[in-house]
Nucleic acid binder design. Structure first.
Lengths: 127, 127
DNA sequence: AAATAGTTGTTAGTTTTCCTAACATGATGT
DNA sequence: ACATCATGTTAGGAAAACTAACAACTATTT
């Protein structure tokens, strides 16, 4: 019975998400506008959030609190979704794309360093 | 973070509960009127359901489908809340009622095994 | 057959919640 | 000082949920 709960099922409405995360509606909508989170919509276009969305929002909240800005969070999320470590991946990605990614990764590294110097340890967000 | 998720937390709004249970709003409100389920309310008086509430509603739906009426369901729920010995039961419940209830309880046992499979596909409600 | 009771549908009118879009504001970085 | 970022605030409108009443269908009783 518990197993059928998919963390990705959009079950939660705005009000509840605000309570669960402590964020304002404005903040949540802004993070969606910045493409950090992608809640589902009802037929009437109202947002419906999943537990996964809650996790993402809490992570955003945490990262913002430690001084990372939206752009930085975007990079961090991209890293989590596509770790480019393996050779196979390199074969699939074009040279131009690869150069862009590497360049971004270096910028990201700088940002991380700055952030951690100022604010604290970010290592727990990486695996 | 995962621990904050309580089955008794009222997180779900009407629309979602309708989808999860396959019941109409009218039915759900009627069952509340009959005191079979007791959803929480927002400040604006809107119903908020917990996972436990969902279970109850699914059980109501099942019992109704097998021919038990609201009064019978009420009795069954009372039995579950305060398990009493068979002698006492006979004093309170007529023979006919008892037979019906026992029959349904056996069905219930089967049903609870099936329960995890019963949820419908919600994906069509979202894009 | 008619009446009754139980369960759900339907409708109307209202309230609550959520939406988008725009402009305002305080903080931060250049 | 000025620009950018993140959020607040407001206005107007749309969606979702509410209550209450009445209708309808079913099954049971008289």
């Amino acid at each position: 019975m518990e197993k059928e709960w998919r963390r990705s099922m959009p079950l939660l409405s705005m009000n509840i998400v605000m309570q669960l995360t402590g964020l304002t509606a404005r903040q949540i909508r802004y993070y969606e506008e910045q493409e950090l989170v992608h809640p589902a919509r009802t037929e009437g276009k109202q947002r419906m959030f999943s537990l996964d969305d809650i996790d993402i929002l809490l992570e955003i909240k945490d990262l913002l609190k430690t001084g990372v800005n939206i752009a930085g969070i975007k990079q961090i999320f991209e890293m989590k979704n596509s770790p480019i470590t393996s050779k196979e991946v390199r074969q699939v990605i074009s040279d131009r794309e690869l150069r862009a990614i590497v360049k971004e990764e270096m910028h990201l590294a700088q940002r991380q360093q700055r952030a951690s110097l100022r604010q604290g340890d970010l290592s727990r967000f990486f695996r």
